[in-house]
Nucleic acid binder design. Structure first.
Lengths: 241, 241
DNA sequence: CGCAGGTTTGAGGTAGATCAATGTCAGTGG
DNA sequence: CCACTGACATTGATCTACCTCAAACCTGCG
């Protein structure tokens, strides 16, 4: 034990962690009360406005973070400005690429977001001592890898129609309010972001959305709010049969 | 120590492992001699012909494996037969998705391949006891994730010309024979596979290859053997500036 | 009201798909 | 040695899904 504090408070879970809605689901669940104390001493809850960058492509990684609320998009950009969203993260996901000094992508808040961030070094120290923490991080990496590969199939082999349906299905399943048949939700992304996620243009996204609306597959309350009367039908449109 | 054997031989690295060319680079490097013994008792070296499936999409995962030689492609298939390669693995990569019963993709030998395979349960038992092993697996997952995300940019935002150049560059860098300027290599994939990797058709791949040849960016000895006189030029074609 | 940011709609062009033919090369058997 | 076969690759002609460019349309806001 290289923890200096040994009084009774050191074994209490910090109040902010007690209140944290995502502690059970996030990587913090792997930590003891004492470790949470240690982490907590160097972490900061932050509100981040939509559109703000958390880490930049090519920048040194200074901090990691947990998402407490909101949606964060991971994007890659080419030298000429073409852009691709390569991942969407929701609470209680962990943001950051362990074991690497420089980020190969940029992380940006898609919606107004709350994160709990802490210095790189603190997490790495904890990871070395806590196999369960590395296990949690590993599981998250594997989940992200599964997501990425699913999306590669979408990007490489689906039509624009199927891509847009796949996207709506993805958001519906992450936001999961509804009864399994019907579903209604806010889109966390603008049309431009959706286009960057699907490898399409804004116009094509828009056209496919109106096509799905005219089909009756979805209805659009306003450009950000969508409801799906019959989920199975959307799944069929997405090509997942 | 729940290891039963305690004689001197139990602390020797098994002969087959001593001869193994990839032990240093693969996940086995995390294991003690005793653990290698344990793993070795249940593992099998296998030669696998090009085109043979190792695990199938939707099948239960029975075994994991290390690639000793050759190239393995990871593919996803839609219900109607459309297909996408979502990853290429080279020696000494580990094949398998830890902590999951059923495979969401299929792994198939792209070239004639040698693997060292072992039952799922053995690896999982070792992982629980050996944080260093999980760390190695974690690092491999992260590397695969980086690769997947790089490729998402390629799939979503690059032109057919750039895609083919990116593929050639990828193979050149993995095969790394050459001096950094010039490079010459065997393609481990048929035109059909390349098309499935790039989200294109065979015909488009072929046309872009001949275009690159007529440019002088590459020369094609035979359909499988390519040489790149100037690597930087290929990189420029790939859109990586 | 007018203006700005995001979204939709329209007209026309093009990269890449599709369909079909031809070419190449390693076997195989006469 | 040369014809025949089958798998794979290239080439050509046409078609279409998606892009590009341009205009109109919200919705909120000073």
């Amino acid at each position: 034990m290289d923890l200096q504090l040994a009084d009774s408070r050191s074994s209490q879970i910090p109040p902010v962690c007690m209140k944290c809605g995502v502690r059970g689901g996030g990587v913090c669940a792997a930590l003891t009360a004492a470790q949470l104390q240690e982490l907590n001493r160097q972490s900061a809850r932050q509100r981040i406005e939509a559109g703000t960058e958390v880490v930049g492509q090519g920048e040194e990684i200074g901090t990691y973070a947990n998402i407490m609320q909101g949606v964060v998009k991971l994007t890659k950009m080419m030298a000429d400005g073409r852009q691709q969203i390569v991942g969407l993260q929701f609470a209680p996901d962990f943001i950051g690429r362990p074991f690497q000094r420089e980020s190969t992508l940029s992380a940006e808040a898609a919606t107004d977001t709350e994160i709990c961030s802490f210095p790189r070094a603190v997490l790495e120290r904890l990871t070395e001592r806590t196999p369960e923490l590395e296990h949690r991080l590993h599981c998250q990496s594997l989940k992200e890898l599964d997501d990425a590969r699913d999306w590669m199939l979408t990007l490489g082999r689906k039509t624009a129609h199927e891509k847009v349906a796949s996207f709506l299905y993805l958001i519906a399943s992450r936001t999961h309010c509804g009864d399994g048949v019907k579903s209604s939700f806010e889109l966390p992304l603008s049309r431009a972001d959706i286009a960057d996620f699907l490898g399409l243009t804004i116009e094509t996204v828009s056209r496919q959305m109106t096509k799905l609306r005219k089909d009756g597959t979805i209805s659009i309350e306003n450009s950000r709010h969508v409801t799906v009367p019959n989920m199975e039908r959307l799944v069929r449109c997405a090509g997942n049969e």
